[in-house]
């Protein structure tokens, strides 16, 4: 059985890096007396995989991790215990038990939704009218240019900022900082990840809905 956990990172938790997050959850699960299962080898690690790394400084209300517990427990029990054990600024939203056969969240996800908040919202919204959005960076000493536009599915104004849904995951990944860099926006920007999605038959589902 795979247990999928949906959580968030707010306030100062945004500064907890991806590597550190693994320790945060391992320790929270230990405090919650959840029976972790471990990898083999000289230095066993808990079987726990995060769906999609989040950049340092970005808050989120849609993070996921798949954890394999040694013993099956009702999802409500896991939810309750984990909720009590997680540190401040790591809200817990949902826990769902899934069959072993599901595709791991890390491999399944295809899109992520971000909200950008800064003084240059108009310029972000203008992406809608651009034919291309060229992002250039140096990779191994070579300048590489890439058009991000085809990988952006949606740009819209919301009450809290500009929402952009773009490709995410192992196939194609658009980092929010790449969008800012392509627009040459250097103003201080708050970025919030709303959720992560799996595109399935033309619809977006979340990793909790895998079957």
């Amino acid at each position: 059985m795979i247990t999928c956990v949906k959580f968030g990172k707010d306030s100062s938790a945004a500064f907890v890096s991806h590597l550190d997050l693994i320790r945060v959850f391992e320790r929270a699960m230990r405090r919650a007396s959840l029976p972790l299962s471990f990898t083999q080898g000289f230095s066993p690690r808990p079987k726990m995989v995060f769906a999609h790394a989040l950049g340092v400084g970005i808050t989120s209300s849609g993070e996921y991790l798949d954890v394999t517990l040694e013993k099956e427990l009702p999802s409500e029990v896991i939810f309750q215990r984990l909720k009590e054990a997680l540190p401040e600024h790591f809200p817990l939203y949902d826990v769902v038990n899934l069959p072993d056969s599901v595709t791991p969240a890390m491999a399944a996800i295809t899109h992520a939704s971000y909200v950008f908040q800064n003084q240059e919202e108009e310029r972000l919204l203008e992406i809608n009218f651009l034919d291309s959005l060229i992002y250039t960076r140096t990779k191994k000493g070579k300048v590489v240019a890439e058009d991000l536009k085809p990988h952006i599915s949606l740009i819209e104004k919301t009450a809290s900022g500009v929402r952009i849904i773009a490709r995410a995951g192992s196939q194609k990944n658009v980092r929010p900082s790449a969008i800012l860099s392509a627009l040459e926006i250097s103003a201080q920007t708050r970025i919030h990840r709303e959720d992560i999605y799996i595109e399935k038959e033309g619809c977006f589902i979340t990793p909790l809905m895998r079957s």
């Binding site: 100062s12 500064f15 907890v16 890096s17 550190d20 400084g57 401040e88 201080q188 708050r190």
Partner: peptide, 20 residues
């Protein structure tokens, strides 16, 4: 400070101060 200078501060985790 960490928010404003995110690209300049190597390990903002040093200054969180709200650890467990």
């Amino acid at each position: 400070l960490c928010e404003r200078y995110l690209d300049k501060i190597e390990k903002p985790g040093r200054y969180i101060g709200a650890e467990l």
